[in-house]
Write a protein that binds this DNA or RNA. Structure first.
Lengths: 336, 336
DNA sequence: CTGTTAGCGCCTTCAT
DNA sequence: ATGAAGGCGCTAACAG
């Protein structure tokens, strides 16, 4: 800034003022300064500003798996709103390893993020309480456990119940449940919805058809293959997330079986699989946007009484795909 | 730090030393300091450190579309290596709007990132030259245009040629080309590979079957529908990326047609579509990892002669999926 | 082994 | 309309 000032024949202070759009600078000076800035390719040091102004202009986001479109959409939603309010996003991926999460969060706090949005990887959230001593924290996709803070959730229970009810209303009574670990909120909640739909339909779920603790498409595929192999197998499947659905679909494909499948999360090409699918869809971007809004709102009110913990819910809707309406596909054409 | 020092009955300087693992501190003092740190929940201010030490410990990543699994994988690869070398990742999404890119990059430079990895959104790269005055820049997925810097590419030409050759070797002579804008490097390069395969096979490509400028699945779907509707249509399709392949697949599905399809990028569930697919697959994480390595290497050599621009290529391999080997699928079971 | 001094780049405050 | 002084939190360099 000194250098720029020298070139423009003013003090560093005046350069600072120009760059801040401070009104009290003469037009002539202003122009000389901008010219000097351009010529030197000068850029203001945001680190020094942060130190002086006491705010880094960054918020931190911790997701469990960025490779899952769900979380990358969520990240985009966060960024959209963050940008709108002049924040940048520092992103960390916990790779679903809850033991890494505390370090990631500490690191973000060290970098002076002004707030955090976290998709907690595990059920222990004590480290989050530590972070909250420094900055506001908003949880996404999973609720706080023993923590007083905001969160954004999807209608896990409601969505699971509704999708399950679709299968039940078609007469299915042997629906397999393929779920993620019940220690995860979504896992427990979606099972609860599955169960509630059964109760409402007066159908007793067959507990031998319930598989929990599936962590990815591969484990889901194995579980589904096992179920399909049984003498008294399911007539339909319910999957608690996109990866599990994909694993189950792979199992169906490998065994040449067509079974109605209901599941949480829509995914690419779900409409062209030619399978009877009932998917609980929702706007993952919106989870991120809402979380960012809650966070920004808390930041706005840093002085003054912090608002009571809020819980925002993003709605779900059920999408149904059928088998192809037309006749069977034509065979691959002979190239001749 | 003063506060911690007071509680531990030492000066701020000693606290600094303890937190830095400076060897010259007595064990007793060390313990008192840690105790005080814990009690106060103290965290070192990384912003102030950055200012003092002259390095933010952050690198910036700019991608064009985080919602595309290709880029989220790339981001994970970058983060993996960045973390390994003690850097955090500041992420920006240009949403494929090249006019926004300069601002994003300036912002990252302002935040004192020590280096940048960029997937350039457009063909104009002048703003990158500006950024290079401040920090090293590595390009990913697209090469530099009039810029002296490192980049990481996939074997665009080779992959496209190989996949196209597969179709040609099966006797196809009327292969449609569904491509992204030719102004994009990948678009041009993959068309070149498509064309080269034809020349090598002694087949003249039908230029009426070539569609370029497709930007997403929807435009690709329309283009494919149009081609399929022609009296003398293609007997196979070549698509230059995952979104275009998905659009084309949707068109095939809607029209009840089964055509062999070759394309760049593998995608989820490609193996269970029951379509004859020939996909050029590669490790998107690896692009990110390599880019990060090139960047870190440049950072290591900040003093001294900067290395000549390097170009790293990530290999591709062709994956083939067939139609189901078994008989036709069983019909959906009656729930009764 | 520990403390003091000074300054990283910027901006708030006060002076001119 | 512009400049000078001081300090944000930290640490390298230099005492002691």
């Amino acid at each position: 800034m000194q250098d720029v000032g020298k070139l423009a024949q003013v003090s560093a202070m005046t350069v600072s003022r120009v760059l801040k759009n401070d009104p009290g600078v003469s037009e002539a000076t202003r122009e000389r300064v901008f010219a000097a800035v351009d010529r030197l390719g000068y850029r203001r040091n945001q680190t020094a500003r942060s130190l002086r102004l006491g705010g880094s202009g960054m918020i931190g986001l911790v997701v469990t798996n960025l490779a899952n479109p769900f979380y990358s959409r969520l990240a985009l939603g966060v960024q959209e709103v963050a940008t709108e309010y002049g924040f940048r996003m520092l992103l960390s991926n916990s790779a679903e390893q809850s033991e890494r999460e505390p370090d990631l969060i500490d690191g973000l706090v060290d970098h002076q993020v002004e707030g955090l949005i976290v998709v907690p990887a595990g059920s222990r959230q004590q480290h989050l309480a530590g972070a909250m001593r420094h900055v506001p924290v908003v949880l996404a996709a999973r609720p706080p456990a023993g923590l007083d803070t905001d969160c954004v959730l999807v209608e896990d229970f409601h969505g699971a119940r509704e999708a399950t009810a679709c299968l039940l209303s078609e007469g299915h009574t042997r629906i397999a449940f393929l779920g993620n670990p019940p220690a995860l909120y979504t896992g427990a909640e979606r099972l609860r919805g599955f169960w509630a739909a059964h109760e409402e339909a007066g159908v007793e779920p067959d507990s031998t058809l319930i598989r929990q603790g599936l962590v990815d498409a591969a484990t889901a595929e194995r579980a589904a293959l096992d179920l399909l192999d049984r003498s008294k197998g399911p007539t339909a499947l319910f999957c608690t997330n996109n990866r599990i659905s994909q694993g189950a679909i792979r199992a169906l494909y490998r065994t040449g079986t067509t079974l109605p499948l209901a599941g949480f999360d829509d995914f690419d090409l779900s409409d062209v699989l030619g399978l009877p699918l009932t998917l609980v869809s929702y706007d993952a971007d919106e989870i991120g946007r809402q979380a960012a809004r809650l966070l920004v709102d808390r930041l706005d009110r840093r002085e003054g009484e912090p608002p009571a913990p809020r819980r925002v819910t993003v709605p779900t809707r059920v999408i149904r795909h059928g088998v192809p309406s037309g006749g069977p596909r034509s065979a691959p054409p002979s190239p001749a």
